[in-house]
Amino acid sequence: MGIDWGVVQMAVPLLAEGTVMTLKIAALAGLLGISCGIALGLISLGGWAWARALVAAYVSFIRGTPLLIQIFIVFFGLPLMGLRLGEFWAGVIALSFNCAGYVAEIVRGTVGSVEKGQTEAAKSIGMTQGKILLYILLPQSIRPMVPALTNDTITLLKNTSLLSVISVYELTRSGQAIIASHFAPLEIFALLAIYYYAIISVLAWVSRVIERRLPAW
């Protein structure tokens, strides 16, 4: 048996539709997750012990449980709380929560590694801990943070495939639908691999360009 090129030709535009949904989910979840993760990372370096403890517990839960379980908790848990957002937004929220936990650790490690003398100098001129983190330490941490954030974003994009279990019609789900109707698993899974590889290659290239153009502090 050879490759069914007719199925391949038919699948290419259908998978492109799933790709658009995957990119939309990844963009929204990445924006929310990175924003929240930066905030949580800065809180974990702040002066409030109770806030640091809450962030540490949140990060520990995110890192210690499978993403698939987190997706199920959000998808089935939100309706019990009276929030019926549908599969798309449940998936976005679950991925955002997961992303935020990992980004918080990236920020905590990167910002916390900036030379301590700068913190002492800023305190000597009357700056608060919050202003030191926001205006002194964070800007110097952005460039070394970019590779780790890129890896996290790539992982987030690949993790969108898990949303197929709650019937979000993203790239993987669209491939599964084609396989179910035409039974051509080799052709479709090969196409899925090509689509994901192309997207992630572009993302990695954009990250390298951004990293080169960022100022060195």
Score class of each variant (00 low, 15 high):
residue 3 I to H: 07
residue 3 I to S: 08
residue 3 I to W: 14
residue 7 V to Y: 08
residue 7 V to W: 06
residue 8 V to G: 02
residue 10 M to D: 15
residue 14 L to F: 07
residue 22 T to C: 06
residue 22 T to Y: 09
residue 23 L to N: 05
residue 24 K to L: 07
residue 25 I to W: 03
residue 26 A to I: 01
residue 30 G to W: 05
residue 31 L to E: 11
residue 33 G to D: 11
residue 33 G to W: 05
residue 33 G to C: 10
residue 34 I to R: 02
residue 34 I to P: 00
residue 35 S to N: 05
residue 39 A to L: 14
residue 40 L to V: 00
residue 41 G to H: 06
residue 42 L to R: 01
residue 44 S to E: 10
residue 46 G to C: 04
residue 50 W to Q: 08
residue 50 W to E: 11
residue 51 A to Y: 08
residue 52 R to E: 14
residue 52 R to V: 02
residue 53 A to D: 08
residue 54 L to W: 12
residue 56 A to E: 15
residue 60 S to P: 00
residue 62 I to Y: 06
residue 62 I to T: 03
residue 62 I to D: 07
residue 63 R to P: 02
residue 64 G to Q: 13
residue 65 T to V: 07
residue 66 P to A: 13
residue 67 L to P: 03
residue 70 Q to H: 10
residue 72 F to T: 00
residue 73 I to A: 13
residue 74 V to P: 01
residue 77 G to E: 13
residue 80 L to A: 13
residue 80 L to D: 12
residue 82 G to N: 10
residue 84 R to V: 02
residue 85 L to A: 08
residue 85 L to S: 04
residue 87 E to H: 13
residue 89 W to I: 01
residue 99 C to E: 15
residue 100 A to I: 02
residue 101 G to M: 07
residue 107 V to R: 00
residue 127 M to D: 09
residue 128 T to P: 00
residue 129 Q to S: 13
residue 129 Q to R: 15
residue 130 G to A: 09
residue 133 L to F: 07
residue 139 P to T: 02
residue 141 S to L: 05
residue 142 I to C: 05
residue 142 I to D: 10
residue 144 P to F: 07
residue 146 V to Y: 09
residue 147 P to G: 09
residue 150 T to G: 13
residue 154 I to W: 10
residue 156 L to A: 11
residue 158 K to E: 06
residue 159 N to Q: 12
residue 161 S to D: 13
residue 161 S to K: 13
residue 162 L to S: 05
residue 165 V to S: 14
residue 166 I to A: 01
residue 167 S to C: 06
residue 169 Y to L: 10
residue 172 T to A: 12
residue 174 S to Q: 15
residue 175 G to F: 05
residue 176 Q to D: 14
residue 176 Q to P: 00
residue 177 A to S: 13
residue 181 S to G: 07
residue 182 H to Y: 15
residue 183 F to A: 05
residue 185 P to N: 10
residue 185 P to F: 09
residue 189 F to S: 07
residue 190 A to C: 14
residue 191 L to T: 06
residue 196 Y to S: 06
residue 196 Y to P: 01
residue 200 I to C: 15
residue 205 W to H: 10
residue 206 V to W: 09
residue 206 V to A: 12
residue 210 I to C: 11
residue 212 R to T: 04
residue 212 R to Q: 14
residue 213 R to Q: 15
residue 214 L to T: 04
